[in-house]
């Protein structure tokens, strides 16, 4: 049972975070709270990807000069083979660097749109805006 939890709890954590973000996006009335929920939602997905890049058994950052104990000079000549098990998986980190930038860009555009809404209606609560829209 404990084994089971230890092997899978990172997935459950990201699912919990994602559902918190989803609830905030759907159920909150304030527009800025919806944007914060959207951010939490996207952060949960980034969290999921990064958590899959870990390798148990002492893997370190994927920079080739920090292997445990071996000098890595002379790699070009094939003198020391690189032990892949000693380095974490670099690909999810790369993908998530891009995804974080996309998340921030979307946040920026969403906030610009919220500024436009505020200029027009004077409030950021969704139900008050609906009342103003209905009044014409």
């Amino acid at each position: 049972m404990f084994e089971f939890i230890v092997n899978y709890y990172n997935y459950w954590m990201y699912i919990g975070l994602m559902m918190i973000g989803f609830y905030a996006m759907m159920a909150k009335r304030n527009l800025v709270k919806k944007i914060i929920g959207m951010n939490i939602f996207q952060s949960a997905i980034i969290f999921f990807y990064i958590s899959t890049s870990v390798k148990k058994g002492g893997a370190t950052v994927p920079i080739l000069e920090y292997a445990h104990g071996h000098a890595t000079h002379g790699i070009e000549h094939g003198a020391n083979a690189i032990d892949v098990m000693q380095y974490a998986n670099p690909l999810p980190h790369v993908l998530m660097l891009t995804a974080i930038v996309v998340m921030v860009a979307t946040l920026g555009v969403a906030l610009a749109v919220v500024i436009l809404i505020y200029r027009r209606y004077g409030t950021l609560e969704e139900d008050e805006i609906m009342k103003l829209v209905r009044r014409g």
Binding site: V6, N7, Y8, Y9, N10, Y11, S51, T52, S53, V54, K55, K56, G57, A59, V84, M85, N89, L91, P92
Partner: peptide, 10 residues
């Protein structure tokens, strides 16, 4: 499993 060094992704 989390951190499995033989997973397909790794």
């Amino acid at each position: 499993k989390w951190g499995d060094p033989h997973s397909p992704a790794s």
